[in-house]
Computed example of a mutant assay.
Amino acid sequence: MAKRWLATLFSLAALSLCLGAAQARAAPYPDKPIRIIVPFAAGGSTDILARMAAATIGSALKKPVVVENRAGASGNIGMEAVARAAPDGYTLLFTSTNLTLNPSVIQHVPYDPVKDFSGVTMLAFAPMLLITRPDFAGNTLPSLIKYGLDHPGELNFSSSGAGGAPHLAGEMLKIRKGIDMTHVPYNGAAPAITDIVAGQVQMTFTTYVSAQAMLSAHRLKALAVASKQRLPVLPDVPTFAEEGLDDFEIGTMFGLLAPKGTPEPVIQALYGAIRQASASPDFQKKIIEQGASVVVNTPAEYDSYIREDVGKWSKLIKQIGKVSGN
């Protein structure tokens, strides 16, 4: 009799545990604050758009969403923190192209952009602009390319730092058009742009936000934008394709990701919140003001983009190595 009573007791205890686990699994998401880690300092475009995403998600899901800046090592510190976080939807990553670029330019990266993350959505894409002085080598991309071909070794292009998207955009142009030109790296976009005005270098690739003041003052001119469509903030600047250089798309993506293994309903809840908000004119205006285009693709589309982007950077770095003889 005692054995039967104990067996019944254990069965009831096991049933209670199962019911508790089922209830825990069925708990609505989110049931506590969400944290979004930005792997860069506050104030930049990534941080601005991350806070916009946080406000959007918090409003839609009725829970606080906190943005935490964890900068350092070209974004690797913050990205590793999210890659190692629990895949429960409460620690997310909002980052830039460094996610897919770093593995090609940094020897030891503490995460795998494909294996360690699940995409929620790419919020926006900010293409590179090719800028130069208004009085240098004509007013068009073809005239600049012609100058480079006619004056081998005389053309210099600056960048915000070796290995970044602006540097690689210059290398891509160099390879695609066979121009003999020299890369001059700077510590940041501001000095790279300032020295064009000073005449120390002739051109650079940068984002609209970085060049906005100089462009507005007509001290610099944008010759082309490296995207499929023209930028709404610069409607008169043609794309590279319009100027005769197809498939020249390079820039900075801004996207939201979760640790790999995050449940699909959680991913969809986050994506749905941003997708719904993206129809708002105010939402679109804020992104356009950053010199970017609204994307808001599906989680599956974003995952595919990440895989392709990793491959694109890897291929380009190998091409640059071959050209330089390394």
Results as ranks from 00 to 15, higher is better:
residue 299 P to S: 10
residue 76 N to C: 14
residue 3 K to G: 01
residue 26 A to V: 00
residue 109 V to F: 05
residue 132 T to D: 05
residue 21 A to H: 04
residue 291 G to F: 08
residue 34 I to N: 02
residue 238 P to T: 13
residue 32 K to I: 12
residue 120 V to N: 02
residue 297 N to H: 10
residue 137 A to C: 05
residue 26 A to H: 12
residue 13 A to W: 13
residue 37 I to M: 06
residue 260 K to R: 14
residue 255 G to K: 01
residue 145 I to Y: 01
residue 47 D to W: 05
residue 208 Y to N: 01
residue 98 N to L: 03
residue 90 Y to I: 11
residue 124 A to Q: 03
residue 318 K to Y: 01
residue 252 T to P: 00
residue 169 A to W: 01
residue 164 G to M: 10
residue 299 P to F: 12
residue 13 A to H: 01
residue 100 T to M: 14
residue 179 I to N: 04
residue 219 R to W: 06
residue 148 G to N: 09
residue 135 D to P: 00
residue 173 L to V: 06
residue 135 D to M: 00
residue 82 V to H: 07
residue 75 G to W: 06
residue 254 F to M: 07
residue 227 S to C: 03
residue 127 P to F: 07
residue 251 G to C: 06
residue 141 L to Q: 12
residue 227 S to F: 12
residue 92 L to V: 03
residue 190 A to Q: 14
residue 245 L to Q: 11
residue 294 V to N: 04
residue 259 P to R: 01
residue 82 V to D: 04
residue 146 K to H: 13
residue 252 T to D: 14
residue 129 L to Q: 07
residue 218 H to A: 10
residue 257 L to Y: 15
residue 191 P to C: 06
residue 134 P to E: 11
residue 66 V to W: 03
residue 9 L to C: 11
residue 257 L to W: 13
residue 46 T to R: 00
residue 257 L to M: 15
residue 305 Y to P: 01
residue 172 M to Y: 09
residue 36 I to D: 11
residue 283 F to I: 05
residue 53 A to I: 13
residue 271 Y to G: 07
residue 309 D to N: 14
residue 286 K to H: 10
residue 33 P to D: 08
residue 7 A to N: 06
residue 304 S to P: 00
residue 6 L to W: 15
residue 260 K to F: 08
residue 306 I to Q: 03
residue 157 F to A: 12
residue 249 E to T: 14
residue 60 A to M: 08
residue 55 A to Y: 00
residue 15 L to W: 12
residue 307 R to H: 15
residue 163 G to C: 02
residue 79 M to P: 04
residue 171 E to H: 11
residue 210 S to W: 09
residue 16 S to N: 06
residue 82 V to A: 07
residue 7 A to W: 10
residue 7 A to H: 07
residue 87 P to W: 01
residue 80 E to A: 15
residue 286 K to V: 10
residue 301 E to V: 02
residue 326 N to F: 05
residue 283 F to W: 11
residue 60 A to I: 00
residue 182 T to Q: 07
residue 118 S to P: 00
residue 126 A to L: 02
residue 102 N to G: 10
residue 81 A to R: 14
residue 285 K to T: 11
residue 71 A to W: 00
residue 256 L to N: 03
residue 231 L to E: 09
residue 266 V to H: 01
residue 133 R to N: 10
residue 80 E to S: 14
residue 213 A to F: 09
residue 162 A to Y: 12
residue 42 A to E: 14
residue 18 C to E: 07
residue 236 D to V: 05
residue 320 I to N: 02
residue 152 P to R: 12
residue 209 V to F: 11
residue 233 V to C: 10
residue 220 L to T: 12
residue 47 D to K: 02
residue 16 S to D: 04
residue 283 F to H: 09
residue 152 P to C: 13
residue 299 P to G: 05
residue 179 I to F: 01
residue 168 L to S: 02
residue 155 L to V: 13
residue 55 A to H: 07
residue 207 T to Q: 15
residue 61 L to M: 12
residue 233 V to W: 03
residue 101 L to G: 04
